[in-house]
């Protein structure tokens, strides 16, 4: 069954669904800068704006996978540069723990990522997204953390 399914997917080009959580002050602005500079990255990336990376609850990430996301990336200010002083330090611990746990459960570690992108790093934002999308695409669809009911 599993094998057949992946064969079908291989026939038409697989386009991953990727959710990018970006903090309002650095990474979202970095994404805007990538736009200002017309730095292309795959349209598979969809950005959700949060005030700070520390607003991202592990439940949101699991929810994204449940609903069919193939990768989730979380971007925030560089450590030390958090608009709220310490938010990204908490993020760093939380996400390190969560992603480590997901990997412990056998979820491919390339499906999750934390990246620090400042408001000045438009090029880094685009390059990061490009790279992440490629890695996720290479992994193929997320099967290990999906809710079949959510697939049409």
């Amino acid at each position: 069954m599993q094998v057949n399914e992946s064969n079908i997917v291989a026939n038409e080009e697989f386009r991953p669904k990727i959710v990018a959580f970006c903090c309002n002050w650095c990474s979202y602005a970095g994404a805007d800068l990538a736009g200002n500079n017309r730095l292309a990255y795959p349209a598979d990336i969809k950005i959700i704006r949060v005030p700070c990376s520390c607003r991202v609850n592990p439940m949101f990430i699991l929810r994204a996978f449940q609903r069919g996301a193939d990768g989730v990336i979380l971007c925030g200010c560089h450590p030390g540069d958090c608009h709220y002083t310490s938010g990204n330090y908490y993020t760093r611990r939380r996400m390190a723990m969560l992603f480590s746990m997901l990997n412990y459960l056998g979820i491919e570690k390339e499906r999750t990522r934390v990246e620090w992108v400042s408001a000045a790093e438009g090029a880094k934002f685009a390059a990061t997204m490009q790279d992440f999308a490629e890695k996720v695409k290479a992994l193929g669809p997320n099967k290990r953390l999906e809710d079949l009911r959510c697939k049409q």
Partner: peptide
């Protein structure tokens, strides 16, 4: 910033304008 909303295990803490259900609706 919303740091508290994630620290809270019971989900009692929420952030106006970026509520749990709002972000999840976006994710969905």
């Amino acid at each position: 910033c919303g740091a508290c909303t994630v620290a809270c295990p019971s989900g009692a803490m929420d952030l106006n304008g970026f509520k749990n259900n709002q972000i999840m609706a976006e994710v969905d």
